[in-house]
């Protein structure tokens, strides 16, 4: 599938899933998609419908209300589909890690392929992370 993966790596359509973040990561994701960083250079495009998505950008801690919804969204995405966790929240819970309402085991909800740490991560950092994903696909 080498040839196909190369096509996939050159045309990543991202879908933004906001799973109860503090909202800073979302703002940074929106920054990432502005003309200043111009992700279309890499063929990355923001799509509005989950059916068109190749990569889900999830941010936040997945609280108990949102967790099942995120799972549902992931199941609705056409495969192959990758999940990128934006921020420290999906990785470790960040400052919310002792809250009463967070999902204990995010890995049971959806498989996250790549973490981009930072609270919130800078757009440059996210580009570096997505380039890593592209490298894995190209290998």
């Amino acid at each position: 599938m080498g040839w196909y993966n190369k096509r996939l790596a050159k045309s990543i359509w991202v879908f933004h899933v906001s799973a109860s973040p503090c909202n800073n990561c979302d703002i940074e994701i929106l920054d990432l998609l502005t003309p200043r960083y111009d992700l279309e250079r890499f063929g990355i495009k923001l799509v509005g419908s989950i059916r068109h998505a190749d990569v889900l950008l999830v941010s936040g801690i997945f609280n108990q209300k949102v967790g099942p919804r995120v799972q549902q969204i992931y199941q609705q995405a056409p495969k192959p589909c990758f999940v990128v966790g934006i921020g420290t929240c999906p990785a470790s819970g960040c400052c919310f890690k002792d809250s009463y309402n967070i999902s204990k085991n995010i890995k049971d909800i959806i498989p996250i392929n790549l973490y981009i740490p930072g609270c919130p991560p800078k757009p440059e950092n996210m580009i570096a992370g997505i380039v890593k994903l592209v490298e894995v696909l190209n290998a």
Binding site: Y4, R7, L8, S11, G43, P78, K79
Partner: peptide, 11 residues
């Protein structure tokens, strides 16, 4: 790239 990528996705 977009076209060939979409051809390989799940329907």
């Amino acid at each position: 790239n977009d076209f060939f990528k979409l051809l390989g996705k799940e329907t």
